[in-house]
Design a protein around this nucleic acid. Structure first.
Lengths: 223, 223
DNA sequence: CGAAAGATAGAACGCCGTTCGATAGAGTGC
DNA sequence: GCACTCTATCGAACGGCGTTCTATCTTTCG
């Protein structure tokens, strides 16, 4: 029926939101669109392109909704705000993190997001090389956290019906059950692990990176 | 034929090394082992477990080969050495990065690697919470870089027969062809991108994180 | 010897991405 | 009015995949 690339991507995103990456199949998508699976190939060449375009569509909306997060007085604060916006979206859509900021060739809006990050770095006193490395490192860190968040909870969790906090405590107990000789660190931080909040951990690593970047800029300013 | 879990994992790793994650199929693995596909289910419950165990087997060897990288005088230097060893393995086996350090439940050696990282942090003057956050951040960063390295080169590259450096230059030209209004940063760092080395970029972000960690330890030492 | 446990496969099931060829309608030039 | 092209759609089929079922050998051990 009368579709468009836009409606195809909208429904694709809806499927991804509901069931993650495995839920996006041509047959399921076709059913949703009220048509045949083969028709979708009129709009995209294959499944990879469908995933890329769906991811890019989400990034487009994210860029739109966060357009005002930039050009504050402090570029480092803007970097933090941008990163947290990405983190937020990754929580809302665990599948999103695994595909964003890759294939920047086929994902123009991911490329724009990368540039927006870089534009903040251009406001700091750094060499172009330092800026390139800093932008790459920030993206790598964000993508790494994304991979962690995308990890689906083990089905023991879904079956148990426990609260997330309870399940975390249960996991911490497993750390405490490990041989203390082989896993001194696991015992050392079991309590922290049991009570941790993902956003705190994310902010923490982000601040380490941003602090390092600020030090570089300061050194150049002084040198 | 007379197999064992060990031989199954060895051949699984060989398949992964030769063709990446898509190459690991039960039928291909069975052919390699000279048997039937269904037999493999005697050793592993499903494909996910096979991937987890194969990844963990590689991590086991990596831990063995890098046992002497630890307990140097400077814990930060040890962290750097550990991280670089992981980076090396990720270059050798692009598939490896995408699966390591996840599912620490089913991957005992990934858990050991995590602990080894944490043990270095225990030698620094930090709070347990700071140590937990630092270890998580380091792992996230490494996994994020891994995701980038795992990205298969576009088939244009494989078809073109160009050297990696030439292809990188070609990619940089695409950045330069973007609208300078929308992508000022892409233009700003196009030269850096054209000539960059992945290991330099990795070291760079790693140093940012380690510098931030060292500052935290210093502050506590002084405070 | 014979039963139990360890180990191996062939055949089939259902789902998947993808391809092919046919089929309409919508516009276009003569 | 008509042929012709372009856009859009889809049913049917193909080959490959993970996985299951069931039947079968092989070894162990009382």
């Amino acid at each position: 029926m009368a579709h468009s690339l836009e409606t195809v991507l909208t429904e694709a995103v809806a499927l991804l939101d509901e069931g993650g990456e495995p839920a996006l199949t041509f047959r399921a998508l076709a059913t949703r669109l009220g048509g045949g699976a083969a028709s979708i190939y009129w709009y995209v060449a294959n499944r990879d392109e469908l995933l890329d375009r769906a991811t890019d569509e989400v990034m487009r909306q994210l860029l739109e909704h966060t357009a005002d997060l930039v050009d504050g007085p402090d570029p480092v604060a803007d970097l933090r705000a941008l990163s947290l916006a990405l983190f937020d979206e990754m929580r809302r859509r665990p599948w999103f993190g695994s595909y964003m900021l890759r294939n920047t060739g086929l994902q123009p809006h991911s490329m724009l997001m990368f540039d927006r990050i870089g534009q903040q770095l251009m406001r700091l006193d750094l060499t172009p090389r330092q800026r390139f490395h800093a932008a790459s490192s920030l993206v790598s860190y964000i993508v790494g956290v994304a991979a962690d968040l995308a990890q689906p909870p083990p089905k023991e969790f879904l079956d148990s019906g426990l609260e997330p906090a309870e399940f975390l405590a249960l996991y911490a107990d497993r750390w405490r059950a490990l041989d203390p000789e082989d896993h001194p660190f696991a015992h050392h931080v079991a309590d922290e692990f049991a009570g941790h909040d993902d956003e705190d951990v994310f902010r923490s690593g982000l601040d380490l990176l941003l602090a390092g970047i600020q030090v570089q800029a300061g050194e150049r300013g002084r040198g």
